[in-house]
Structure formats: structure tokens, C-alpha cells
Design a protein around this nucleic acid. Sequence first.
RNA 1: GCCGCCGUGGUGAAAUUGGUAUACACGCAAGACUUAAAAUCUUGUGGUCUCAAAAACCGUGUGGGUUCGAUUCCCGCCGGCGGCACCA
Length: 838
Amino acid sequence: MDFREIEAKWAKFWEEHPELSSGVDNDTKRKKFYVLVEFPYPSGSGLHIGHAFSFTGADVQARFRRMQGYNVMFPMGWDSFGLPTENYAIKTKRKPQEIAKENEQAFKKQMKKLAYSFDWNREISTADPNYYKWTQWIFIQLFKKGLAYKKEMPINWCPSCKIGLANEEVIDGKCERCRAEVSRRNIAQWIVKITDYADKLIEGLGKTNFIEKVKQAQINWIGKSEGARIKFKIQNSKFKIKELEIFTTRPDTLFGATFMVVAPEHKLVLQILNPSFDSPLDRGESKTAPALLREGVGEGFDLDAVKNYVINAGKKSEMERTELNKEKTGVFSGLYAINPATGKEIPIWISDFVLAAYGTGAIMAVPAHDERDFAFAKKFGLPIVPVVMPDNGHDFEKEAYTDVNVGKIVNSPPINGMTPAEAFKKMIEWLVEYKIGEKTNSYHLRDWIFSRQHYWGEPIPMVWCEKCGWMPIPEEELPVKLPEVEHYEPTDTGESPLSQMTDWVKTKCPVCGGEARRETDTMPNWAGSDWYFVRYLDPRNEKEIAGMEEMKYWMPVDLYIGGDEHNTLHLLYSRFIYKFLYDLGVVPTKEPYFRRMSHGVILGPDGQRMSKSRGNVVVPDEIVEKYGVDVVRMYLMFMGPFEGTMAWNEKTLLGVKRFLEKLERLVYKHIKSNCASNKWAQVIINKKIDGITRNIESFGYNTAIAKMMEMINELQIKNYELRIEDIKKIIKLAAPMVPYLAEELWNKVKDNNDSKSVHQAEWPKAEEKYLVEEEITIAVAVNGKVREQLVVKSEDAENREEVIKKAKGLLGMKKWLEGKEVMKEFYVPGKMINLVLK
RNA sequence: GCCGCCGUGGUGAAAUUGGUAUACACGCAAGACUUAAAAUCUUGUGGUCUCAAAAACCGUGUGGGUUCGAUUCCCGCCGGCGGCACCA
């Protein structure tokens, strides 16, 4: 039968039987298994081959587990908010709501075609007000717990998308999406304090079964370093700021700190430029009062130089700043601080190699033991004092000595002779005793900029009241629905298009009832996808994000399949939100995902990443039309390891097509079979059942398919008669990969006692008795090289002496052993013998 | 620079805990069936040596090491991929 007919027939049947793919809440008789695959952003161009690859891998696992008797949760939904839809809406002058709906429908249709057994009763969309009501609710909880606040700060601004970007969305100083150069702008933004959860996010990884790569990516992203904060007194300061606090990972080198450096954005710099300063940086337009400055300011100070330096640093994009990697720039601030260890005066410099956002935005510079400090000291002629010395000495004129593990402390009277590690501890004690510092940690992770100045996203449910400040919308009034506007273009001022809707913006303060304005920013893309896996469990709950009973049953997600590109951002954000919800007591577990798998990537036939511009895109629809769904599914799984990167190759696909045809012929040949059980056929089939089951469990889909091919080949070559029972087992083994064909064949061979669908049938179990070999072939090696084969009865294989004796007696062994003395004999039971000759 | 991963035939790739390297598939070659083609089936297919075969030797990026035995474990190089990167 033509595959098109088969597909149409069974698609209809499955449509009429949704129970085949539904997860059953609180089914205590079966073990639950929650398979989650990252839900797509439904773009206008439809499902691409990468989607097909990861969804097929997930679907195979879901179908396999169901047949094994698990109660499987396998949901799907839509991450529908996003810029492409907004841009498309602007271009076509249509409503994003409508476009999103259409795309969702198109995706769903394609998914059904590809036989993905999603539980469609649990379908959700992040752009659905009934869904984003709860996204907004989560934001309000963050606000109430003090984890969300609004602050004016420089953001990464993409001039092309006209949107603020999170640090994570800036790649090499360019916009992740459109590759435009990112500049910086000061805009009031909602910030979420993810850094409060930095330690919990690291610790929690211990409870998960993520692969090492993912754990490491998360740990690196959080970037925890242990060190100390130390306060340095500013000498003769006429300013409000009397001391400078720094963060260092090397308090052991404090005696070697010969100068200090602050970031151009540091408040001390603002103070220098504007001694009456008490407001945020008004970049480049600070009114200075030079007269105030002259006292307490050191030799070599040049106010104009400082001013220019700060203005220029502000103009530079992050890209330019980091690109100037080699040549350090800087300017003397005119101020001195006291090194608390040596009591000596050291100059304070200003340089953009110090980042305002990390640590305290200020450092103590130890040029002898830090490469950057060294380069800076060399350029500006600042003193270099070694305080750690390795046994074989070191040329401090040439480079910094940075090894913490080798060397002894010098030039530091109270701690001389200690190792850096001992000195670290000692210095911390000393800092605490004299109240000039303490042990702290610092993180690369920065707080999450949560505002987007765009239309197509969840409105941030906040109201600004002159009297009361920022107030959340009362929870019973949620959702704050996205109003329909005339046009969706972002504004050049950086405000959301919502801001032009005066009727909507004007509102009453929920506390005092006075005049108030709504927040017009919307949430970033990540907001909706942070917690979607919870909503699937109870998608229509109107009282809470999901019922606790359902969550207790299903959580955590047993298996989360997604792309490498989400291993840091999405995974970290969603773990953070989930942990926050756990602390609120609304979700039952500390971690959302038990196991994370990152699926591989499919490259174009030319071995390059698929892209429209390269013209190497393989479209699933076309290929499905040509070969049928089953062939495409199985080929995708056969290409290579599920986590690997591999190129599309249509010729290899033909091998899969041939295999399925062979399988079909084999089934039809035995359709009326009534022969007796053939022992050798049983041996073949049961061994493969055993192997295939283990392979699918461990995502070795490619080897599982190879074993199916071996099975069919062997049965065909030997031409064994097979019983209907055997044929049923073979069909079941193929069912997760090729659901349509398997269903068709199943219905040809099944009888009244069998389940109506092969996908409800019980996964075959290998019978032990057929797995045990009667005879075993043992390799016989001499000095590690295999020379002969020895066949023994398997019950004799345990008898070491006997086996070795037999091996030595093999005819072919004569020439190897003659006149030689056997020094040692190794026997790996049932596998091989190695005779070591003198 | 730092972190992580990887390197096996002409190609995609296999190889439980160290135990017969190259399973399965593609491609290629030869053959069967056919008027012919397609499809199907059979056989062969790492390298050197050989008319051919046998045998032997060499072979998992490279050089060492551990071991009776290493694709697998350890160390040093070379090459590639991914992530991070002036993070004090």
C-alpha cells in the first residue's frame, strides 16, 4: 500500500483515539515518565528539519516508554511571543495575535503529520492571556519579594531591532538576532535579581543528572570566585566618598598592591567630575566645579584628561572596549589611597579595563601577580613589587607571576614564607580583625534586565503612582491584557508602542486611587518559557499556576530534550524561576529537570549549517512528501548519535527506505504463518530484543536501528519460518520509530486479544533462555595477538584450566608454541585467552 | 587565554567495565534475474606485499607511558568543534 494511504488512514484513527497519547494524572499503578522537549517558537516558515530531528527523538522515547508500561507525559505548546512575529506584523500590517495563531496551527498540523504523540489536550501558548496571566503573577511575586526593581542603567541597545538586549543576547558585541553592532543607552529598566540565587543555582546542579558539559556551562556562566572585599582609605579626601572598596581573589598579595584602578563609571569618578554629585551619571554633561577639586589632589592630575577619558569610554561600545585587549588606556584620578597592609600611599587610576558591573567596579592592582595590572603598570611606569616568589625565581621585569600553587610569600613582613593559600587565610583573619574587609564571593552572573520596549510580549503588570511609587496590579485583576494598538513599530525614543496608547496607560493607583500610569514595557522572550513545563500539568487551572497534586505526581521532568544553545540562558533562567517558586511554596521540588539531554544538529548536505543564504536547507515537508513520514523519522534517527552533529545525506536515507520495504515483505510473507517455533529464529529475535531495548533506553537510536537491520538480514538469509507471534514482536520493536507502518502491519497480523493499536501493545521482553549461548567462540591470542579461535560448550567456559589446555592443543597453535615457553596465561571467561611467551 | 568535547575506512558511523577494531548503512566493483532498465538478490570492499591466494606485517590524529593486552586509562604535542573571555 502506498505510504500516503497508510498515513491518512492511521492519522485519522489516532485523531479519534487521543487516549493513545495522553498522560493520566495521579495514576499510582504505573510509574510516571515526563518527557519534555523544548517547545518551538512558531515562525512563519514552518517546522524545520532540526525540529523534526529533536521531536522525533523525543517521540521515540515517549512511545517506547508507553509500550514499556509507563504513564507518559509528553506535552507540546508554543513559545509565541517574539520579535519575528512582531516584525512580520509590521510588514504586513496585520495583528501579531492572528499571525501567531496561524503559525501555531501550521506547526500543529505538521507535527501531527509527523506522528508526534503529543498530548494535545495540554496544549498551551505563551501568548494566550490565560497563560500569561500566570507569567505576570510570577513577576508580581518577584516584585513582592524584592527580587524585581526598576533602575536606570545603561543597557545594550540594538539600533536595528530597536530593543534593549540582555547581556546574554549580545554576542561579540553584536545583536544575537540581527548581528547589528550594539551600543549603550541609559534607560529605566526592570531588573530581576537572579544573582541572589547564584549559589543555589550552582548547588542545585548536584541533584540533577545533566551531562557534564551542561553543568560546566552553567557553572562557568555563573562564574563564582572566592575572595575578599577590602576597604582602602582615600588620602586627604575632600569628597563625600572617603574610602574605596575593592574585590580581590588574591588577598594574599595585598602587600604587592602598588596602585588602584576604578572603572570610568565608578561613583568616585562621578564625584571627581562633579563634587556635588548625588544623581546617576549624566554622561558627558556633568557640571564640574573645578575649584572644589584642587585640594587634596595629587601631582599630575588633569581634569580635562579625566573628563575626556570618561566621555570616550562611555561612547565606546562593549565590543570596542574589549577589542582593545592589548593596549591599556587610563588616566590618573588625582587621588591616593592607603594600602592597609603597607600603610603606603598608592595612586588611584581610572581605566576601562576595570568593569563597573563586576565586583565593586574597583580593584587593587598587584602588577607583579596579575597580567592586566602588569601591562598597566608597564605602560604608566607604576611600581611593581613581587610578593610571591617561586623557588627558581622569576623575572618580574618581563611578566607577572600568576601561579597560586607554587611559591612562597615575600616582601610581606607578617606573612613571609607562607604559601599563597596559607597567606590567603591569614589575611582574611587579619582583615576581619581590623574591620577593613571580609571574605566574600563574586559572580560573573549579572542581574537580569527584564524590560523590553516592544509590543509583542507579556505586559509587565505594574503601575507608577507619584505618591506610592511602583505598585503591582492586584492579582485578581490579572491578566493585564495586551491591548490592540494601531501600529506596532517600536519608537526611536526606546519606548514601547504601548506608551502611545494614552487611554490604556492612564489608570488609577491600586493603593491610593490617585492618577497613575501603567508600565508600558513588556517582558523578554524568556519569561513565558521559564515555567511552561509546569503549566502543561494543569493547563486550565484558573486559581494557581498548576495544581499541587498534579505537580507532586509529575515533577520533576524526567527528561528534558533541547538544543545546546539553551544550555546556559533558558536552562538557568527557568531553574531560577522554578527555585523561586519553590521558595514560595507553590511547586513541590527544588529542581525542575532531572535529566537534560542536548540533541545534535543536522547540517546541510554540504556539511555546513543550514541557512537560507547558503541555499542548503532541507525542508521536512518536501522530503516527507517524497519518501513518507516513517522513512524520514527512521532516517533521522539512523544518521548518527542523537547528540551528534551530522550532515544530511539523501543517499543514506535510501538504505532506510530499503530496510522498511524488506521489513514489510517479511511480514507479508508470514502473514498466514502457522509453523512451529524455530529455536534459531528465537535466538536471533530475542538477542535483538535485548539489544534494541537497551539501545533505545540509552538513546542509541542509530545502533538500535542497526540491530533491527541485522535481525531482518539474518532472518532473511537463514530463511527461517516465523510464527505470527515472532512477527508481532518484530513489528513492536519498530513501532516507536515508524508508527504508521507499524500500525498498518500490526492491524494485518493482530488477533482479538491484541490491543487495537500497536502503540498500546506491550514492549517485547527478551527470554533469558535464548540469550544464553550453547557454544562460545573464544579468541586465542599469543603475546596479545589473536591467532586462533576456540569453540567450547558454554557450560565448559568457566573451567579455566580445561579451556586453556584445549586452546594450546589447537592445531593452528602448534607453530606459535613450538619450542617456546609459556610464561603467563590469561583467560577472560568466555571471551579470550592470551598466552604470553618468553 | 580559560572551560568542555572530539579526532576510527572513500562517506555517515559501531565497539558493556581495558579483551577478536571497522558492526549497520551509503558508495563502489563483480555476478544472478531481465530483450533492456529499474527494483530485488548474491559476493567482495582498511593498507602494504601478491597475477591470484595464503601467510605475515602495518593500522583508531601524533609521540611516549601503564598493562599479558589500549580506539578505551595517564602524560606531551598536532588538528578541529562548542562555550566563555580585560570577571580582578
